[in-house]
Design a protein around this nucleic acid. Sequence first.
DNA 1: GCAACGCTTCGATTGCGATCGAAATGTTCA
DNA 2: TGAACATTTCGATCGCAATCGAAGCGTTGC
Lengths: 227, 227
Amino acid sequence: MPTIAPQLAELAGLIADPGRARILSRLMDGRAQTASELALLAGITPQTASWHLSRLVQRALLKVERRGPRRLYQLATPLVAQMLEGMMTVAVTGPSRPPPRIDDQMRRARTCYDHLAGELGVAVTDAMLERGYLALDQDAGELTAAGVVFLGSLGLDLRSPARRRRALCRPCLDWSERRRHLAGRAGASIADLAFQRDWIRRRPQGRSVEITEAGLAAFRNLFGARI
Amino acid sequence: MPTIAPQLAELAGLIADPGRARILSRLMDGRAQTASELALLAGITPQTASWHLSRLVQRALLKVERRGPRRLYQLATPLVAQMLEGMMTVAVTGPSRPPPRIDDQMRRARTCYDHLAGELGVAVTDAMLERGYLALDQDAGELTAAGVVFLGSLGLDLRSPARRRRALCRPCLDWSERRRHLAGRAGASIADLAFQRDWIRRRPQGRSVEITEAGLAAFRNLFGARI
DNA sequence: GCAACGCTTCGATTGCGATCGAAATGTTCA
DNA sequence: TGAACATTTCGATCGCAATCGAAGCGTTGC
């Protein structure tokens, strides 16, 4: 009875190394990084990092792009990000885990591949739930008619890719807040909007984002988020 | 900058062993198995299996229940199943992976923790999509009004747990068919129904299920599934 | 063409985890 | 209480993968 267990084990083994795990979680925001940057981040020498990166690329967890003499690495597909997101969720949901000391900026606001996470992500999601724009349960979610109208008023048309379908969303379990927040196409659209309108800015390194003055006002007034 | 990378690596390391991976994928159907059965399945001695199982329990991937002199192991939470499902998806989505030889029965019909998968799961999902009962995209899904009515006619009331919310569903990427199929509360309800009405039966071992004569007729006539 | 730089390949070392035999523990039933 | 059985603990062995120094490769720019 051949199963996929060997492939599962192989995949897990690729993530099981601390250095590779650091690299992968750093790339969770979808941006690309050079090999040197990743080596520095992972606390290993460039040659070791190179070996790790080549394995990750070969197994198609990462893709690489040559930019001049340097190579830029990033997650191969959103599917990989989603998988890592699920693993992180379980990783912090453990039994009597020592409370994971998480970077304050990271906890405050960050991106989770394509959508908002941290206190900001949860606050926005809570506000949308309260206003009846959204329904989320354990493993599925739905934008209400009022929600479609609301996002439409912000200039987001979530019907664009496939007009026969309504706007779709899914819940993502936040590993710092241990609360569900909005992901999926709706979540990604809101994050895009926030960057476009300069409500949030990426910090030079790390996945955390900075909430601007305008952003704080927008999230509070437009969304009703308590943040 | 403390991150969750170490915990991610530790978790992955727990899945990275072939024996443990076999055990985990065997338990993906949510049922419990004894330590001996799992040892036999994984092809290792009972003492080695015991060591693996204790690690999995300690890290809260499994929970154990004592039934007389034997111990029954099963996945600790649905969250773990969902994580493994995501990993399996990536595990078979690799680049030039040698075509994973998958057990025929397994490919035909199986359960994925709480919902239908394999050809059967995909066929039922396709039929529901065609009839406009369902909308699925990359990472979210939605039951239409017609879908709620349809499932209601089968005796399924998906509003029960929380009446303020509509019936919710999510897509699950099938690792044998490489196609999306219905999961979430709606998917689980349909699978429950199928077991209750004896449309499908669990095979003594493994996660594959047998489609009964009545089941074949039901899936074809009631759902319009081409199977 | 040559130097500078980023990255990769090679080779040798090291440490940790998987494994199983042997023995201990625990549970049920007579 | 004692026998039968499932499971766990202990101890020793073994193999593999992570690591880094040194050297090689490839690209860019002068």
